[in-house]
Simulated scan of single mutants.
Amino acid sequence: MTDYPFPPALRLLRWAIHGTFAILLVIAVAAAARQGQAPPALGGTLLGVLYAVGILIERRLPHYGGQTHLRLGRIWLVVITLGWAALALASPQFVWLAFPLFFAYLHLLPLSVALPGVAVLTVAAILAAAWHEGRLTSAQIIGPTIGAAVATLMAMVYKVLYAESEERRLLIDDLVRTRGKLVEVESDAARLAERERLAREIHDTLAQGMSSIILLLRAARRDLAEDPAAAEHHIAEAEHAAQENLEEARNFVRALAPPVLQHSSLVAALRRISDSAVAGTSTQVRFEVSGTPVPLPAAYDATLLRVAQGALGNVSRHSGAEHAGVTLTYLDDAVILDVYDDGHGFDVSNPDGQAAGTGYGLRVMRERVRTLEGTLAVESSPGEGTAVVATLPLLRGEAA
């Protein structure tokens, strides 16, 4: 009767009831016409039109089950009932139209009203049949009574199915809302993760490069008066570092690999940044490779390079070390990067990291390594230097 969200089984049941009413009405009108009963035949046709109009109106009503729907439906039911009563008294062929009306009563009225209404309708059908026969028989009692009982039972099943359908619909609506909230939470988490990733990239690339440029320019200014050749060398190094930083920025926007890795291996890239990261300072860096180098996944190369840049950046800015070392070790099941220095050191129990810094660089390095299921160990104490060891596991077939 309306396009509310019922499952197919319930919609089929509703249309079966309407179909039963239509079939019984057509049979009754045809029988009355054959017997020359023009007024009942015309009345039956009018009743069918009113029934169809009610269905059409109901299909166009919004908010199924609302007060407007119920009010109009009950008015429609009263009109149909009165029309049926008049036809049932006029011709016995219309008595059996009471059967689909049982369902309408049980559907549109609360049970406290519907059940007495069905009982009254049943008694009316029995009396109408007896009126036309001129006597009351057991068949006249049993037929409408069984019809009322079957209709009541089916209506109860219908209500149970409807309740389950409504419960399922509410559950689906709740799941849809929950899914929407989860999407929002995941979107927020993704934004936070992307913000953290951008912060790591900026810290490990642009910030480190700028630090190197500043150190080189300071060294050039220091040597400008006494050693112009050394100053020129520092300026050239700063220019080269600025060019690399520009490439880092461009590739950072494009989300590409670090430019230092685009045209060289990890070993060559680490050797290069070992020389440039502490340029302009008195720190001497030694780079070593242990084991047999093997090709690594691009994510491993980028992570190890960023860890080395971050650790060497800390050496140049905070340690005041005379010597530092970078060791890349290839094992059968892991690759290890070790960056150490003989500088001031710091208290590793301090959650903020180095006293002179923010500790953000170490946290970034840990997060990078943890992303690849690796570990980052930091060993240091005041006056004893610092060692940063990054270990990335190599599963079978992961190298190359």
Rank of each mutant, 00 (worst) to 15 (best):
R60E: 07
R60L: 05
R60H: 11
R60C: 05
L61C: 06
L61A: 06
P62Q: 12
H63E: 12
H63A: 10
H63Q: 11
Y64D: 10
Y64K: 07
G65T: 08
G65F: 14
G65N: 12
G65H: 11
G66P: 11
G66D: 15
G66T: 10
G66C: 13
Q67I: 09
Q67M: 09
T68Q: 07
T68R: 14
T68H: 05
H69M: 12
H69L: 07
L70G: 02
L70A: 12
R71P: 00
R71G: 00
R71L: 12
R71N: 02
R71V: 09
L72D: 03
L72Q: 09
L72F: 13
L72P: 01
L72C: 05
L72E: 02
G73I: 11
G73Y: 15
G73P: 12
G73D: 13
G73F: 11
R74W: 08
I75L: 14
I75P: 00
W76L: 03
W76H: 15
W76S: 13
W76F: 14
W76P: 04
W76Y: 13
L77H: 05
L77V: 01
L77R: 01
L77S: 00
L77Q: 04
L77Y: 01
V78N: 03
V78H: 07
V78W: 09
V78Q: 07
V78I: 12
V78K: 03
V79D: 04
V79G: 05
V79N: 02
I80C: 11
I80L: 15
I80N: 13
I80Y: 05
T81Y: 08
T81A: 09
L82H: 01
G83P: 00
W84H: 06
W84D: 01
W84M: 03
W84V: 02
A85L: 14
A85D: 01
A85M: 12
A85P: 00
A86I: 14
A86Q: 11
A86R: 14
L87R: 08
L87H: 08
A88H: 11
A88N: 12
L89Y: 13
L89C: 02
A90F: 10
A90G: 15
A90R: 12
A90C: 13
S91V: 08
S91H: 15
S91L: 05
P92V: 13
P92T: 10
Q93Y: 15
Q93S: 15
Q93I: 00
Q93E: 13
F94M: 04
V95H: 01
V95A: 03
V95W: 05
W96A: 07
W96M: 10
W96L: 11
W96S: 02
W96T: 03
W96C: 00
W96Q: 03
W96P: 00
L97G: 07
L97R: 06
L97F: 09
L97N: 05
L97V: 09
A98V: 11
A98R: 01
A98M: 09
F99M: 15
F99A: 14
F99N: 09
F99Y: 13
P100V: 07
P100G: 06
L101R: 04
L101K: 03
L101G: 02
F102P: 00
F102E: 04
F102G: 04
F102W: 02
